[in-house]
């Protein structure tokens, strides 16, 4: 049995857990805890170790999706989770510009861990105050070659698009030998 993994990362409360829940064939093994810091009490719980989802391709191949903890004090988990990843998705909450700088930092950090392909998911595009993808791209200072795709993490079809775009990037890298 061959197992491959992708990492789903992004700032606190960006929608990583929802993203994995939408597509995983198993109940996501989640390590959420009640939030203790007042400043981070945007939601009741957060992921402290990882979320874990699975997509079985066939008897010989399984894809694992690992969601990273969103709070910065758990960032020691990032490197552990990034080991051996096929590629990664950076989830950004399009409606919270105060998190954009952190999203960029996370993106750069994961690129430093492993120069694997990645895509940026502009999440919460259904929120009225969400930034359009083009504006988000500018705010994140994304290179034109980086795919930034609109996303609603609770919508399975949107999540599929993101993963297929990432796989497309990986395939392109294999076929062209491009490491950019």
């Amino acid at each position: 049995m061959q197992t491959v993994k992708m990492v789903v990362t992004g700032p606190f409360n960006s929608g990583k857990t929802a993203f994995i829940r939408s597509i995983s064939e198993i109940e996501v093994v989640s390590t959420e805890r009640k939030i203790s810091l007042e400043v981070e009490k945007v939601k009741e719980t957060t992921t402290v170790a990882m979320d874990f989802g699975r997509i079985t391709v066939d008897d010989d191949l399984v894809l694992y999706l690992f969601g990273t903890p969103g709070q910065k004090r758990f960032d020691f988990m990032w490197e552990i989770l990034s080991e051996g990843m096929l590629g990664f998705v950076v989830i950004v909450d399009s409606s919270r510009p105060e998190t954009f700088r952190e999203a960029r930092f996370i993106l750069d950090t994961f690129r430093a861990y492993a120069p694997t392909p990645y895509v940026v998911a502009a999440n919460k595009q259904d929120a009225p105050e969400a930034w359009p993808v083009d504006d988000l791209r500018i705010a994140l200072k994304l290179d034109p070659s980086v795919k930034c795709i609109p996303c609603v993490a609770n919508d399975k079809e949107k999540v599929k698009v993101i993963l297929l775009e990432l796989l497309g990037g990986i395939l392109q890298e294999i076929e062209t030998g491009d490491k950019s």
């Binding site: 079985t56 191949l61 051996g84 294999i174």
Partner: peptide, 19 residues
């Protein structure tokens, strides 16, 4: 880590088909 060899392209296509 999956070695990025041309042989692995088939594996990526299988993943994409499954998704």
């Amino acid at each position: 880590p999956m070695p990025k060899t041309p042989e692995q392209a088939g594996l990526i296509k299988r993943l994409a088909d499954r998704i």
